[in-house]
Nucleic acid binder design. Structure first.
Lengths: 221, 221
DNA sequence: TTGCTGAATGTGACTAAGTCACAGAACTCC
DNA sequence: GGAGTTCTGTGACTTAGTCACATTCAGCAA
């Protein structure tokens, strides 16, 4: 319980959480996972419900031919997972989860999870919100893949993953895996942007020369 | 209430539903929508939670250039919607819903919906299950679009939408809109299948000559 | 029956994306 | 400073998507 209250500072969910919710969370197992750790495989049975306290978990799909695509991220400060559907439906994970950073998380058993849904309005709300965000994001992703051009999606990626910086340290393969396409495709588009003098490329590094132009490309095309 | 019990026969959810659940559903507005009716637009605010009793609602996205893709269907006998996330988060629909057949449905207000979550284990279970199925289906769809070839997806479509019959009445445009691609692409692939003598094509009609071959194509390729 | 109209389908030419098979560069670690 | 690994570049080719039409078909009206 002291540990819980230590967490509260960095974990807004806990602040003002109702009594039953606190009780359930204090029963939960707390785990710390190192970076690059596989949290669940495609095809695994789910056994626990995960609430991420800090760090990020990347959820991705993999094709037979070895291509990958990032479906979404379970982000720092609170979101949760598709564990839900598996847990309740007893189904298998349709995707793979990998920590990107060190991750601290709560693990709830199926029973505790059901109880959380039944008894804690706060947790219920939290779980539903995460679920909803995820579904909306997936709908957006489907439309992006189906309708948008790679150069625009690439621009969006560059903007989203560079924050306010002017250098992005990432290999072409990393980017291809995020967007669900082939490395060559990314290499060629990056090269085209370099020829426009919007970027400067070197091994594992992309430097922005004209970030505004990229930003415009990311918006509408 | 008499009306409710009349529904119970065809609507498994009601059978054995707990007391609070029945109370909430009996307060719900029941509506009947004609076929081809728009249920919600992309960008609409959500105001109600929908539970479909009979008929199907098709949920689809639309691109700037006019292409469409079917995200999923809200099916006969019970499933529900992404209304959930909008309702709770006060967000907008990221997609468009259209009835494919005449549809009978319950509409719950946001308040009743919250109450259903809090008080009825049966409804909560129902809502969560639908949610989970949907999310899993969307994850599958992302991977299908990102990784699978059109001919395989087309074959899958033909098999899934023809049931046990040997004729499918559908235009090429309809199929393209379902799969999120262009009509010409579908026309060409269908023609290729006709040349293999697996199909016979005529206006608005596809006849199977070798359904097993199509079935094989749908599986692995 | 004929002719009109709108919807559905066919086709060629072209651009974009994805695959395959390498070649070459750049880093890491003895 | 090699050796091995990872990353990037490139050409040739297949598949998918776009564009601009031509053609065909069904239904209806004259």
């Amino acid at each position: 319980m002291t540990e819980l209250s230590a967490l509260a500072q960095q974990f807004p969910l806990l602040e003002g959480l109702d009594e039953p919710g606190v009780a359930i969370l204090s029963r939960a197992k707390q785990v710390t996972l190192p970076a690059e750790q596989i949290v669940f495989h495609q095809g695994d049975q789910c056994s626990h419900y995960i609430i991420v306290v800090s760090g990020t978990v990347k959820v991705m799909g993999r094709s037979a031919s070895g291509r990958e695509i990032v479906l979404y991220r379970i982000e720092q400060q609170g979101s949760c997972v598709l564990t839900t559907s598996c847990l309740l439906g007893g189904e298998q994970y349709p995707a793979e989860g990998i920590t990107e950073t060190e991750v601290r998380a709560f693990l709830l058993t199926a029973t505790d999870f059901q109880q959380a849904l039944a008894e804690s309005a706060g947790l219920r709300r939290f779980i539903f919100d995460s679920y909803g965000e995820r579904l909306a994001a997936m709908i957006g992703l489907v439309q992006e893949i189906a309708f948008e051009r790679i150069d625009q999606r690439l621009a969006k990626y560059l903007i989203d993953h560079s924050g306010s910086g002017f250098v992005l340290l990432r290999s072409h393969q990393d980017i291809a895996d995020e967007l669900g396409t082939a490395r060559e495709v990314i290499s060629r588009h990056l090269k085209a942007l370099e020829q426009k003098e919007w970027l400067a490329l070197s091994r594992n590094q992309i430097m922005f020369l004209n970030k505004d132009a990229i930003r415009v490309l990311a918006k509408s095309e």
